[in-house]
Design a protein around this nucleic acid. Structure first.
Length: 621
DNA sequence: AAAAAAC
């Protein structure tokens, strides 16, 4: 195959793959090949460039997963590592009877009991089950075994072993049903490791690539634990104070909304109530939802502080605390608020509650901060942390500041020309400032490209409308600030353009992670110029780690630059490292992820993190 | 320096 593949082709192919769910066409010669039947198949990174005879055939997307994938589903018995969960099997209460116990302010506290409320529970899977089945099942035929040699690092005391199936861990019948409804056939690598750790009651700091299933990894154990747990005796406070059992914090309103939607699917008909609270929206409606009972509260920090100060929420009964995008939650902007919530209200102490931190990136200095919130925690790194999956084709182009708009226009024109069914592929354009976002959006619209924008100066209504319009394809170009950089799961994003590069390589990792999700391919194009010199070095390292073609001019830039704070030492391995492994005499302040050369405890080696599998949808961060 | 996050 010739190497002359234009970015427009890549974007078009990527779009084609994302639109045509049943197709498994890889985006280009670097990740694709053709099966004997002439059908293109995805070849995982570690199986590429090998003589065809010596190896078993590359795994193919073979359509609907066989029922063999879940032997004994729901049949195994749960080996309870904690005494307080042993009552699960005795509790016919869940699913057929009363919840038992007093749940002041909880769902059990409503008159009529929880099962009446359950009858009213809106089906979060919608009414189009039959319609969804075909397209989604077609894409669940991924061979997860192909990813068994993904590098995994764990450290900490007595790490529980990973599982291979959901059935092995018996999360409970109701939750298992929801897992099936979500078409999750097998746990992703991060789920295989994180869920047993959480179920064992251990604190966890987990790093896993963007789009790899982190949301479910912390939701399943929480929901399961609440289902099994004793109905708590909630203290009497103000009659209007509610006592959630789990708290999930995230850095943006839209991400909290998304986590809430996912968690509602997972908890459907389990009796576990999930409520979301975030700013920019009328508080009264959120208060009413809370009053109807809450087990799991998903929130952004500001609104939660408000609710705590009004004494409408108490954290006294919190058993589970999860921070999504945990490194962002603990960076300079958020740390004081998080400390207030976690340390200065009535939250149980570390060791009493169970704490789980998740992110795709985890700088060492943030790890150090985070250890304040954890007790005897397990560090887990799955895949090459801080790196992107190599399902994302990364391009860097030298574009002077003054040429950026016309260059973007060229990209979009060519992309439209190559588009599927004449439709513009979804393109997410990141810029540095809110003003810049508005002005670029306006300019794109003036030039015939339907665009919208999302940033912190827009009203919450406008933000949500923009996201909906983008997702639906009505406005196939979304200009965004970093508000959209993390966690958002937007299906069918074919192309991420870093119109302005971020200053931090981790932000870059999260931004490009908006494409190439759940095993799909994607394209990321960055406009680089002299203003981005400090990023050059870490960008080159990252791209090399992800097997990307690095332009020679960029390598020269990197050699010239002194390297910003982003530079990770240690010869370029991006694998996450537990900062506790670093010698206390060896704590250089600039040591970003820890020394990459020290002996790791990779359970397996040689492979590296690719994607995880197609069709496992939604909220994988 | 910017962005995010309460009213």
């Amino acid at each position: 195959m010739t190497t002359r593949t234009s970015w427009a082709d890549l974007a078009a192919n990527s779009a084609a793959e994302n639109v045509d769910v049943g197709s498994s066409s890889a985006s280009n010669g670097t990740v694709g090949t053709t099966s004997a039947a002439g059908r293109p198949v995805y070849v995982p990174p570690h199986l590429r460039n090998r003589p065809p005879s010596a190896d078993p055939p590359a795994p193919t997307y073979t359509g609907p997963a066989s029922s063999n994938d879940r032997p004994g589903y729901g049949g195994s018995r749960w080996a309870a590592p904690r005494n307080d969960r042993n009552d699960y099997n005795n509790r016919s209460g869940y699913g057929s009877g009363g919840g038992g116990g007093v749940r002041l302010g909880g769902w059990g506290g409503r008159s009529g009991g929880w099962d009446r409320g359950r009858d009213r529970e809106v089906n979060p899977f919608g009414n189009d089950d039959a319609e969804q089945t075909l397209s989604e099942q077609e894409s669940t035929g991924i061979n997860f075994d192909a990813y068994e040699d993904i590098p995994v690092e764990t450290s900490g005391d007595n790490v529980p072993p990973p599982v291979n199936t959901f059935a092995e861990i018996d999360l409970g019948e109701a939750l298992n049903l929801n897992i099936q409804r979500c078409k999750y056939v097998k746990p992703t690598p991060v789920q295989r490791h994180a869920i047993p750790i959480s179920l064992a009651g251990r604190d966890l700091m987990a790093c896993a690539q963007t789009g790899s299933g982190k949301t479910a990894a912390f939701c399943f154990p929480i929901i399961s634990g609440i289902m099994r747990g004793q109905a708590p005796q909630r203290p009497l406070r103000g009659a209007r104070t509610v006592y959630p059992l789990a708290l999930i914090l995230s850095p943006t309103r839209e991400l909290s909304m998304q986590i809430h939607e996912e968690a509602r699917k997972f908890s459907y008909q389990t009796g576990v109530k999930v409520v979301v609270a975030y700013g920019g929206a009328p508080i009264n409606q959120q208060l009413r939802e809370l009053e109807r009972g809450v087990d799991i509260l998903v929130a952004t920090p500001g609104r939660l502080v408000d609710l705590l100060e009004r004494a409408r929420v108490s954290l006294h009964m919190i058993r589970y605390l999860a921070l999504d995008e945990a490194d962002r939650m603990l960076d300079m902007g958020f740390e004081p608020q998080i400390r207030k919530i976690v340390e200065q209200m009535d939250m149980p102490l570390p060791g009493v509650r169970q704490t789980m931190l998740f992110s795709a990136t985890f700088p060492k200095e943030i790890q150090r901060l985070a250890s304040d919130f954890l007790a005897n925690y397990i560090f887990l790194a799955v895949g090459r942390v801080g790196s992107s999956t190599d399902l994302i084709v990364q391009r860097v182009e030298f574009v002077h500041e003054s040429d950026k708009r016309s260059h973007l226009m060229d990209l979009l024109h060519a992309q439209r020309a190559n588009g599927v069914h004449g439709k513009q592929a979804l393109t997410l354009v990141f810029v540095e400032t809110k003003k810049g976002a508005d002005s670029l959006e306006h300019w794109l619209c003036m030039n015939g490209f339907p665009a919208t924008t999302i940033h912190g100066d827009r009203t919450q209504q406008e933000r949500e409308q923009a996201l909906r319009s983008f997702k639906s394809g009505a406005t196939p170009i979304l200009v965004a600030t970093d508000v959209a950089a993390r966690g958002l799961d937007i299906p069918h994003v074919a192309h991420v353009v870093n119109f302005d590069l971020p200053n931090d390589i981790d932000d870059y990792v999260h931004r490009i992670g908006r494409t190439g999700r759940a095993g799909k391919t994607g394209l990321a194009t960055a406009f680089f110029n002299d203003n981005n010199a400090s990023l050059a070095r870490s960008l080159v390292d990252l791209m090399q780690e992800a097997n990307q073609e690095v332009p020679a001019w960029l390598t020269r830039h990197a050699a010239r630059s002194f390297g910003g704070r982003n530079r990770r030492p240690g010869g370029g391995r991006f694998g996450g490292r537990d900062f506790r492994r670093e010698s206390s005499f060896n704590r250089g302040g600039s040591d970003y992820y820890g020394g990459g050369n020290s002996a790791g405890s990779y359970a397996t080696s040689g492979g590296y993190g690719g994607g995880y599998g197609a069709g496992i949808s939604s909220a994988w961060d």
